[in-house]
Design a protein around this nucleic acid. Structure first.
Ligand SMILES: NC(=O)c1ccc[n+]([C@@H]2O[C@H](COP(=O)([O-])OP(=O)(O)OC[C@H]3O[C@@H](n4cnc5c(N)ncnc54)[C@H](O)[C@@H]3O)[C@@H](O)[C@H]2O)c1
Ligand SMILES: NC(=O)c1ccc[n+]([C@@H]2O[C@H](COP(=O)([O-])OP(=O)(O)OC[C@H]3O[C@@H](n4cnc5c(N)ncnc54)[C@H](O)[C@@H]3O)[C@@H](O)[C@H]2O)c1
Lengths: 253, 253
DNA sequence: CCATCTTTGTGCACGCGTTCACAAAGACAT
DNA sequence: ATGTCTTTGTGAACGCGTGCACAAAGATGG
């Protein structure tokens, strides 16, 4: 930027690192809050604190967007909100279908946080004939038979799977067949999809198991620091702040 | 192993990489399925396919557990199930409390997948007086006033937060104050906790936004490959299989 | 007991992501 | 204008995670 040349690695003309993409929504949320309080500018330090990340990381992330901060001042809140929204594709809104309207699917349907962020529930789909026509969150549930028609008719490219694990792959195949190219999967199964289709999964059990692992470790450690002096048990705390350096749990599949 | 000395980096006597820990539940699930089908052994290749990972990665992961595979044969399913369960701390069962029994909290309470994996819902807690006493999933909801008593009385160390974002930090503080050291947060907020407390968050909106980002990119790319020859658009598909190399979205905070 | 064949366990190299640390950019006051 | 002070943008080093590729282990059959 300063030097004004050979910015991007050249081999990756438009490539924003995945780790950065995953943090953009975090920044956007913090920025939106600031925007609502009519804060005009923020420093990387402040914003980083609000988003819960390192300020250097944040600055580097923004630099991939070709960021426009002002040295000595910080970033213009409104401008950044716009830039990040655009980068994430939130300036258009995305029709989403939820398949499997049980406990979880219904909760998702009732969740208000979608619309506020550029997503619109285009349809709710379930295999249970008894549910067909019944409104959930004001939207009538449609039967799986019409899945393809619904997807194509609404130009849906993002699908959410909240069916039992056993049905997930089959539902996935139908969604993909109908034109869906991004899937958010809540069922505890590994989905296989053709190239070009993105799958992210959210897995409750995995999250809890990871917590249990660290929990067990904490319990075991105070008993015997495993070759380390007793003081190390306390010292460890600082290193251990994220018991997990990072690591998915929700990840592509 | 083969050489039989200087295994662990020595500086990390008992350290299993976080990335590995995050995959253990995946392996465990695949192994459990095999176990139910009474399959006695699996090769790293087969198991890796079932878990959706690279076989070399899986072998390396197991090597951290001091794995006991048999060359030329594979791994003993039952034995591995036990080893991984023990490593994850699932041989004991963990009492969990869910705070905020709304749409999502109720869905979680009704979810059967907890008990089957070593977790037990010890209590449901909500601030709404109208909900107190009402059973959800067969468990009577208790009022927030008794939060500390409930946590301490049941020796709960894992808490799930499913309250509105505005209440999350406050609930978190009370949980931590009462002795909870692991938190799974569904509210879209950055929680701050003292050292030694683990927080993992599950954030729906972030997941969708990441999908939207890639979706937008796909749409834009077929129009103009951005300086690359047209063939690159197709070639990219293979590189792009995981649109995201990996990257959280559910992560510590 | 030996040969062959399968599959593990891991050394190694590579690439991504994180973090430090600082030069330069610019605001602001004098 | 000029100097000071704040904060960005990034070069560079480092560490973690991934995947290749292969030697060694051991099963299996003759
Ligand atoms: N409820 C939770 O908190 C929770 C937590 C983690 C994971 N999950 C997972 O999410 C999924 C849904 O959980 P749930 O509690 O809502 O289950 P549920 O049984 O309440 O709901 C499943 C719904 O899917 C429908 N369905 C079944 N087969 C279908 C098909 N082929 N096509 C379309 N719809 C179909 C059923 O009719 C039902 O309405 C499960 O895979 C579960 O493991 C749920
Ligand atoms: N429903 C979803 O699918 C979904 C998806 C993503 C994120 N979330 C997030 O999960 C959280 C819960 O969502 P929801 O749809 O269940 O909301 P909800 O409004 O249906 O439920 C919230 C519950 O929390 C209770 N509550 C409020 N303040 C409390 C406090 N201080 N202590 C204890 N309980 C308190 C309320 O009484 C209510 O029962 C929200 O933060 C939401 O953003 C929900």
């Amino acid at each position: 930027m300063a030097t004004g040349r050979t910015h991007r690695p050249a081999t990756r003309s438009r490539g924003i690192p995945e780790a950065t993409v995953a943090r953009l929504p975090l920044y956007l949320r913090a920025l939106t809050a600031l925007s609502e309080r009519s804060v005009p500018t923020v420093s990387s330090e402040e914003l980083a604190a609000a988003a819960g990340v390192n300020s250097a990381k944040l600055r580097k992330d923004f630099s991939y967007l070709g960021s426009y901060g002002t040295r000595g001042v910080g970033y213009d809140v409104e401008y950044l909100v716009y830039q990040i929204s655009r980068e994430l594709g939130l300036t258009q809104d995305w029709p989403v279908v939820i398949v499997g309207i049980g406990n979880l699917g219904a909760a998702l349907a009732n969740y208000g946080g979608f619309a506020s962020r550029g997503f619109r529930i285009a349809a709710l789909i379930d295999a249970d004939p008894a549910m067909a026509g019944k409104p959930v969150a004001g939207i009538p549930v449609q039967h799986t038979d019409d899945l393809e028609k619904i997807i194509k008719g609404n130009g849906v490219s993002i699908g959410v799977i909240a069916t039992p694990a056993g049905a997930a792959q089959q539902v996935c195949d139908r969604l993909v067949g109908a034109g869906v190219t991004s899937i958010l999967n809540f069922a505890p199964t590994v989905l296989s999809v053709p190239d070009g289709v993105d799958v992210r999964k959210v897995d409750l059990s995995i999250e809890l198991q990871i917590l249990a692992f660290h929990e067990q470790r904490k319990a075991g450690e105070e008993a015997l620091p495993d070759g380390l002096p007793a003081s190390a048990a306390a010292a460890r705390e600082s290193t251990d702040k994220g018991p997990d350096g990072d690591v998915p749990a929700v990840m592509p599949a």
